[in-house]
C-alpha cells in the first residue's frame, strides 16, 4: 500500500501515469497496425491461406505501371494543392486580419462552411457539375465563354482541374483559419513600431507577418503534403467509384483500396500503403530539416 502510494506520489512516475491512456491507445491502434501492415506486406493473404512470399509484393510494385501512374497522380495533386492552398489562404488571412474588412465573422464562417460539408455530398454535386452533357453547369459556363462542351472527367488535365477545384473549395477556409490564429499571436507592438518607422501595409506583410507566420506555414505544409498524397475520397466521389477512364483519377490510396478491398489482395495493398508512408515521411523529414525544425531552439 505504502509503496503504491509512493509510486503514485512520485514526481517521476506521475507524468507517465497521466500519458498512459494515450500511450496505450497509441500502441493498440497505431503501433500494432503499423507492424502488422509491415508483416502483411511480405505475405499473400487469402481466406485460410496465409503464406510468406518475401519481397514478391514489392518486386511487383516496381513493375506495376498502374501503381506508378497512381503515384504520379498523387504527386501532381499534392504539388498543386501546395501551390494553391498555402499562399492564397495566407494572403486572404492577412487581408481578413486588416482593418478594411467588415463583417469578419460572417466571412470566416462562410469560408469555413465547405469544410463542414460531407465530401460525399460535395463530390456528387461536383460530379454533376462536371458531367459531359452540354447541359451540365461547367459546360454551360464554357459555352457562354465561347468554347465547345468539354468531357471534363474523361481528360487528364480537366480531370485534375476538377479535383483541384474541389480541394480549393473545401480547404481554403480551413487553411485561412490556421493563418488567422497565427496572426493573432503576433504582438501588436511590432505593427506599432513599424508604423512609427513609416512601413507600408505590404512592407508589414513582408517583414512582420510572413516571417512570424513561419511555424504556421510549416504546420500547414506538413499536413498538406500528407493530405495531398493520401487523397482518395474526392476522387472516389467525383468518378462515382474507384474507376476513372485511363485511371486519371487514381491515387495511391485509391490503388490501395482497389487492391486490398476490391481485389482481395491485402498483402499487396499493405505494400502499397507502406510505400505511401515512406514517401510521406521522406518528403516531410527533408522539408522539416530544411525548415530548421530539428535545430536547437535559438534563444
Amino acid at each position: 500500500m505504502k509503496s503504491l502510494k509512493k509510486v503514485l506520489y512520485s514526481q517521476k512516475a506521475a507524468p507517465y501515469v497521466f500519458v498512459l491512456p494515450f500511450l496505450l491507445s497509441f500502441m493498440f491502434f497505431w503501433i500494432y497496425p503499423l507492424f502488422s501492415t509491415v508483416k502483411m506486406s511480405f505475405q499473400s493473404i487469402l481466406p485460410g491461406q496465409v503464406e510468406w512470399i518475401g519481397l514478391e509484393n514489392y518486386q511487383k510494385l516496381l513493375k506495376d505501371r498502374v501503381f506508378h501512374l497512381a503515384i504520379k497522380n498523387s504527386f501532381t495533386y499534392m504539388f498543386w494543392t501546395l501551390v494553391l492552398l498555402i499562399p492564397f489562404p495566407m494572403i486572404y488571412a492577412c487581408i481578413m486580419d486588416g482593418k478594411l474588412v467588415k463583417a469578419k465573422g460572417l466571412f470566416k464562417a462562410l469560408l469555413y462552411l465547405p469544410a463542414l460539408t460531407s465530401v460525399v455530398v460535395a463530390g456528387t454535386m461536383f460530379r454533376l457539375m462536371f458531367a459531359e452533357m452540354e447541359t451540365s453547369q461547367m459546360n454551360q459556363i464554357v459555352q457562354w465563354l465561347g468554347f465547345g462542351p468539354i468531357k471534363w472527367l474523361k481528360g487528364k488535365y480537366t480531370g485534375m482541374f476538377a479535383l483541384l477545384l474541389v480541394a480549393c473549395w473545401r480547404w481554403t477556409g480551413v487553411n485561412m483559419l490556421y493563418y488567422l490564429s497565427g496572426l493573432k499571436n503576433i504582438d501588436n507592438s511590432l505593427y506599432e513600431s513599424a508604423e512609427i518607422d513609416g512601413a507600408s501595409g505590404f512592407k508589414k506583410f513582408l517583414y512582420i507577418q510572413l516571417p512570424l507566420l513561419k511555424p504556421t506555414t510549416i504546420y500547414v505544409l506538413t499536413i498538406s503534403i500528407y493530405a495531398g498524397l493520401a487523397m482518395f475520397l474526392e476522387s472516389f466521389m467525383l468518378w462515382n467509384g474507384n474507376a476513372s477512364p485511363n485511371n486519371i483519377g487514381l491515387t495511391i490510396v485509391g490503388y490501395l483500396y482497389r487492391r486490398g478491398i476490391e481485389k482481395n489482395q491485402l498483402g499487396y495493398a499493405s505494400a502499397v500503403g507502406l510505400v505511401l508512408l515512406a514517401i510521406a515521411l521522406f518528403i516531410n523529414i527533408i522539408q522539416l530539416i530544411w525548415n530548421g525544425t530539428f535545430k536547437k531552439e535559438e534563444r
Binding site: 497509441f26 491502434f29 497505431w30 503499423l34 506538413t222 499536413i223 500528407y226 493530405a227 493520401a230 510521406a280 515521411l281 516531410n284 523529414i285 522539416l288 525544425t293 530539428f294
Partner: peptide, 16 residues
C-alpha cells in the same frame, strides 16, 4: 525530436 515527428505524422493518419 525526429522520433516525435514520426509519431506526429503517424497520428496524422489517425486524425485524417
Amino acid at each position: 525530436s525526429m522520433l516525435l515527428c514520426i509519431v506526429m505524422l503517424a497520428s496524422l493518419f489517425a486524425a485524417c
